[in-house]
């Protein structure tokens, strides 16, 4: 997947699953959209579906500091380096 494809999929997930439409790529999702820890865990489930494999415990822990769409895309790209997407 290209960066653009990843970003497009993440924005789709945010619209369909979290009812957040077109957030700014560097906006703090927690501060601006009340995106909380429960949402973050649900997002990890969506990412697992997107990449077609389960995340390890360490990979999940590594996601906890993520706050923006761009950081989510970075995170998925890092996951992609360890497994084919």
């Amino acid at each position: 997947m290209t960066r653009e494809e990843i970003q497009s999929e993440i924005l789709r997930i945010f619209k369909e699953e979290f009812e957040i439409t077109n957030p700014g790529l560097d906006e703090n999702l927690t501060e601006k959209y009340d995106f909380d820890s429960i949402d973050a865990l649900d997002l990890l489930g969506e990412i697992e579906t997107l990449i077609g494999s389960s995340l390890t415990r360490e990979e999940k822990k590594a996601s906890m500091e993520i706050r923006t769409i761009n950081q989510i895309c970075d995170y998925i790209e890092e996951l992609a380096e360890k497994r084919p997407l």
Binding site: I38, L41, D42, G45, E48, S54
Partner: peptide, 8 residues
Amino acid sequence: GFSSVGAV
């Protein structure tokens, strides 16, 4: 199926 047990 395990991942279908949601956080909430």
